[in-house]
Simulated scan of single mutants.
Amino acid sequence: MAHHDERTFVMAKPDAVQRGLIGEIIDRLEGRGLKLAGAKFMQIDEDLAHQHYAEHEDKPFFDELVGFITSGPVMAMVWEGADATQQVRRMMGATDPKEAQPGTIRGDLGLDLGQNVIHGSDHEDPGANEREIELFFDEDELVDWDRADEPWVYEDVSH
């Protein structure tokens, strides 16, 4: 991983998969200059869902979260880039798509809080990235590589 890169976990949720939005989500993240380090099309089981949403276990909406995330396949991904977690969060928009700004993924592609298309690691929780990446990926499933256009994305890249 280059010195300016941070890894972050992103998931196209079951509603995004069912609506054919995986490509649109990947396109937006790639277009921003972020680099895909790993991707896995998968069905989340209850055990993994419980681990993924562990911090919400005592909340009234926990069962709904688990039910939704296990309702169909997801695309789990790891993206790299400078300040990747915060960049992805800004691109995703507000959690409730009705409040998300136009131009954001949720603002353009979602209408419902329960079906908000995308999940990204929380930039305010320093351990969220590593925890979520380790839940979904083994280290050997992640690829360390250089994008050919990195000198055109970052001004401090010298090869």
Rank of each mutant, 00 (worst) to 15 (best):
L113W: 05
L113Q: 07
L113I: 13
G114F: 05
Q115N: 03
Q115M: 03
N116W: 10
N116T: 06
V117A: 06
V117D: 03
V117I: 15
V117E: 05
V117G: 02
I118V: 15
I118A: 06
I118P: 00
I118Y: 01
I118D: 05
G120A: 14
G120S: 09
G120V: 01
S121Y: 06
S121D: 10
S121I: 08
S121M: 07
D122E: 02
D122L: 06
H123Q: 06
H123N: 02
E124K: 08
E124C: 00
E124N: 07
E124A: 12
D125I: 14
D125P: 00
D125E: 09
D125Q: 10
D125A: 08
P126M: 09
G127Y: 02
N129V: 09
N129P: 04
E130K: 15
E130A: 15
E130V: 13
E130C: 05
R131N: 04
R131F: 06
R131T: 11
R131V: 11
R131I: 11
R131G: 00
I133Y: 05
I133W: 04
I133V: 14
E134Y: 01
E134N: 15
E134V: 04
E134G: 04
L135V: 12
L135R: 10
L135Q: 11
F136N: 02
F136W: 14
F136E: 03
F136A: 00
F137I: 07
F137T: 12
F137R: 07
F137S: 05
D138V: 00
D138L: 05
D138C: 00
E139C: 01
E139F: 03
E139G: 01
D140Y: 13
D140I: 08
D140Q: 13
D140L: 08
E141F: 12
E141A: 10
E141P: 08
E141H: 13
E141S: 11
L142S: 09
L142M: 09
L142K: 08
V143I: 15
D144L: 05
D144P: 00
D144Q: 13
W145E: 07
W145L: 09
W145H: 14
W145K: 02
D146W: 07
D146P: 00
D146A: 12
D146N: 09
R147A: 15
A148N: 05
A148D: 12
A148Q: 08
D149T: 12
D149E: 15
D149S: 13
D149G: 06
D149R: 06
E150G: 01
E150I: 02
P151S: 12
P151A: 11
P151W: 08
P151F: 10
P151K: 07
P151L: 08
P151R: 10
